[in-house]
Nucleic acid binder design. Structure first.
Length: 475
RNA sequence: GUCCCCGUCGUCUAGGGGUCUAGGACACCGGGUUUUCAUCUCGGCAGCAGGGGUUCGAAUCCCCUCGGGGAUGCCA
């Protein structure tokens, strides 16, 4: 068994494509199949090497490995379609010679008109060039470059058993007429060479997005005309945005790279993407990769499109963050702390882990660490909007004044037992009205770890600075 | 227009004629823990697109409608 993932390098790795890659990867692991990467860079205008590099990089980050690809030739290469031109040329010649393809000399307008005509008469569109003889074609081709089209057989039934969609039946008359396989600039087209490459690379199972479902009959027809085998198919339902339209940038982050940057864990993304469209018998959703592989069954994937739930992904990511050991997760947080400009180099590992241990629970993604960690790492935390509002209240000012009075007589040892009880004793406040302003005053925000835990970690000196700051600003 | 695919809580899904007064998860709401928030924990809200059949019985089978998606000449 051999499966493949065939990205076209025209941009970043989209989350929808990543899902396809993930399903291929899981399937390969499950059945011990080879996983091939083929770069479909036939769109010369939009394909870039940078894009190819970043896509492969994102796949690696996700934890996807391949046995063959542009960087690993195992005898089925080249793995970039742009490097396989000679192969395609041979097959095109063969199709032309056997009468399965022809050169079309019609103008755009002509074709458009003929199609419209066929449509209104409710009959299949037949290209007016499809019956030109080879010599007629050769004579005409002196006038310039023209596209080559595949001669779609009339009224032929094409059917296949899709692993996900089930039995699918098409009639060749509904394909939309003879279609272009080689552009007028000589470049072969996706629907054409995908059949050749899948056959030559001995792909046995094509797992791809549902948007290719209605392309499948064309590809089968081509394989048949060429006498090539064609694979089994599994068409994955599409991933939609919250408005049920195809997932795009306006719905949120769609680039795998950005998920990485924001601090999503590859295991979580893999888990979420792998679980999309099906579920386990037990209902368990947090699945390690090994579980994913052993429990996965491609035919159990649902047939309908799924809305991408950013919130659920976050939740899932958060639960992965909680699963790691303190030491492991600390290492993962460090780059985000660094990037935010927080001073951690001078910190002992013990102190850093201490801070992480009391802040990690509020993190769903790695970059979430910045705010809570800042409570400990900054000298002063400028109160955010909510904290600012609260601190302007009279009772808050009362607390700031009181704190300011007490703090000079305290020190690192006594601050924990002295500060809050002291404020409580010297003011009328208790409960929420006591703790809320204190929290706002010393952390600059309304949420965070327990104050009793936070205070010793912040330390006497910074506490004093923060109280002084609030005294100046609010009293 | 034509052809193909799809339609269970807001979202992801379980369920394939009776065990469904439709189960789980995310989100949301409420209780408990935490002297706030978060974590954790307990509970609640909420759905079979609509209409016809078939059947003793339909979320489950059939048909129609509606809705969404895809393909239909130089994207993949």
């Amino acid at each position: 068994m051999r499966v493949r993932f065939a990205p076209s390098p025209t941009g970043y790795l989209h989350i929808g494509n990543a899902r396809t890659a993930v399903v291929n990867h899981i399937t390969a692991k499950k059945s011990g199949a080879d996983f091939i990467i083929r770069v479909e860079d036939t769109d010369k205008e939009r394909s870039t090497v940078e894009s190819e590099i970043s896509i492969l990089d994102d796949l690696r980050w996700l934890g996807i490995e391949w046995n063959e690809g542009p960087d690993k030739d195992k005898g089925h290469g080249p793995y970039r379609q742009s490097e396989r031109d000679e192969i395609y040329r041979e097959y095109t010649k063969r199709l032309l010679l056997t009468g399965h393809a022809f050169t079309c000399f019609c103008s755009n307008e002509q074709v458009e008109e003929d199609k419209k005509q066929a449509m209104t008469e409710n009959r299949p569109f037949l290209d007016r060039c499809r019956n030109l003889t080879l010599t007629e074609q050769e004579e005409l081709s002196f006038h310039g470059e023209y596209p080559v089209k595949f001669k779609v057989p009339v009224d032929e039934t094409i059917e296949f058993d899709d692993k996900i969609k089930g039995h699918v039946v098409f009639n060749s008359s509904n394909i939309g007429g003879d279609f272009i396989i080689v552009r007028s600039d000589g470049g072969p087209v996706y629907n054409y060479i995908v059949s050749i490459d899948d056959a030559l690379m001995e792909i046995t199972h094509v797992i791809r997005g549902e948007d290719h479902l209605s392309n499948t009959p064309k590809q089968i027809l081509i394989a048949k005309a060429l006498g090539l085998p064609f694979p089994e198919y599994a068409h994955l339902p599409l991933i939609l945005g919250s408005d049920k339209k195809k997932l795009s940038k306006r719905h949120g982050i769609t680039s795998v790279d950005l998920y990485r940057q924001e601090g999503y864990l590859p295991e979580a993304l893999m888990n979420y993407l792998g679980l999309l469209g099906w579920s386990t018998e037990s209902g368990e959703e947090i699945l390690e990769f090994d579980q994913l592989v052993s429990l996965f069954d491609i035919s159990s994937i649902g047939k309908s499109a799924a809305v991408f739930d950013f919130q659920k992904l976050k939740w899932m990511n958060g639960s992965y963050i909680k699963k790691y050991s303190l030491s492991e997760i600390t290492d993962m947080f460090i780059p985000y702390l660094d990037k935010a400009g927080l001073e951690i180099k001078s910190l002992s590992r013990e102190k850093l882990e201490n801070i992480i241990s009391i802040t990690r629970n509020s993190c769903e993604i790695l970059s979430d660490i910045i705010k809570p960690a800042g409570i400990f790492l900054n000298e002063i935390n400028i109160p955010d909007e909510e904290a600012d509002k609260l601190l302007k209240e009279d009772y808050s000012r009362d607390i700031i004044n009181t704190a300011s009075g007490i703090i000079p007589v305290l020190n690192d040892e006594t601050v924990l037992t002295g500060l809050i009880p002291g404020i409580k004793e010297n003011t009328e406040h208790k409960g929420k009205k006591l703790f809320h302003p204190i929290r706002a005053m010393i952390t600059g925000t309304l949420s965070g770890p327990d104050l009793d835990i936070a205070i010793p970690v912040i330390g006497y000196n910074n506490l004093k600075k923060r109280i002084d700051y609030c005294k100046q600003k609010y009293c």
